[in-house]
Design a protein around this nucleic acid. Sequence first.
DNA 1: TAGATTGTTAATCGATTAACAATC
DNA 2: TAGATTGTTAATCGATTAACAATC
Lengths: 177, 177
Amino acid sequence: MVSSSALATAAGVKPSQLRRDLAYFGTFGTRGRGYPVQALRMAIHEGLGRAKLQPVIMVGAGNLGRALLRYDGFRKEGYDILAAFDSAPDKLTDKSIPVPLHPSDSIASFVKTNNVRMAILCVPAEFAQQAVNDLVEAGIQGVLNFSPAVLQVPADVTVNNVDLALELENLSYFVRK
Amino acid sequence: MVSSSALATAAGVKPSQLRRDLAYFGTFGTRGRGYPVQALRMAIHEGLGRAKLQPVIMVGAGNLGRALLRYDGFRKEGYDILAAFDSAPDKLTDKSIPVPLHPSDSIASFVKTNNVRMAILCVPAEFAQQAVNDLVEAGIQGVLNFSPAVLQVPADVTVNNVDLALELENLSYFVRK
DNA sequence: TAGATTGTTAATCGATTAACAATC
DNA sequence: TAGATTGTTAATCGATTAACAATC
C-alpha cells in the first residue's frame, strides 16, 4: 500500500490534489490504509489508454522531426512511431532515421491501414495548418504539435502544443539580468 | 498599428486576455488606435530579456540531448547553445554534434567563464537531481528540464519541465479508444 | 462628433487546497 | 478503541473573460 502523501511527494504535488485527481477516474484507495500499489498502477494504465502499444506517426522529417525519431523515450512509455512522412523524402536519403520514411501524400492510406490515431507534427510553421488539415482528413484524432503555429481543428480532434523555443523564452523571463 | 483583436486571433487567445497580458508589462497601446507594431515588438523583446543572444549549455548528450542540439529552433529564437556536457564524453566521439563536448566536471568553470545563466537538462531521470544540484552550485539560474524527474531547487532558481512522453500520454487520453 | 479600441475593473470560471466526516 | 488516511465538500485562490469608462 502507498499513501496519497507519499505519492504526492514523489510527484511534486499536494496530497489533496493527488487524491482529487485519482478520484476523478474512480475509487481506488481504502480509507485508513492508502492505495494498493499494483492495482492502482494498472488502473492508471487503463485510464490513460495505455493498455497496449499505441501506434503513432511522425509528420515532418526536418531537424526536429529526425531528432525526436532518434529519441527513445516515446517507445519506453508505450508509443510506437511506425513511420515518418515528409514532403520531400528523396532529399533525406542520406539522413539515417530508425523508421521507414514515406512521401506526405501517402499519409491517409497509411493511417487507415494501420489504424493510427495519433501524430507528432514537426513541419515548418508555414506548412503546419495544411499538414494538420490532411491529418484530420485522414482520421487522426490527436496531434502533438511541435510547430510554432496556432492550429485550427474540429472540436473532436485534440492538439497539444509544445513550443521548445518558447519554453526557453519563458525561462529567460525568470533569469536575473 | 495593430489591434488587440488582430493579435489575439493570431495568437489563439481572447482579445481581453492579450490586452491584460500586455498591460502587465507596461502601457504600449493608444486608446482608439491600437498598438504600434515596431515599438511593441521591441518592448516585448526587451521585457522577455531577449535584447541579445542568450548563452545556454546542454547537460547530457544522450539521444534526446544530441537530438535537441541538432535542432536549430533555439538559435533562431536568440539562444546560443555554447557547449554540451556529458559524464562520459569519450564514449560519444563518433557521434557528431554541432557544439564542443566537454566532461561534466568542467561545467562550473565553463559557466563562470562564459557567464551562462541557463541550462537545458537531458540526463537520465536517476541522475537529474545530482546534475541540477551541480548546475545550481555553478550559478545557473534557469533550467529547462527534459528529464522525467521532479527536481528540488532553491527558490531563486527556476525549473521549467518538458516531459515529451508525458505530452503524448496526455494526448492519448483524448483519443477515442 | 462618431467610431474604434485601449486599460482596467468587476464578474465569472475553474483549479487548488484545507478541512473533515467516513471508515479501515 | 486509537491512529491513519481516504473521498469529498466547502473555502480559497488565481486566471480568464466581459464590460465599459477613458480617450484617440
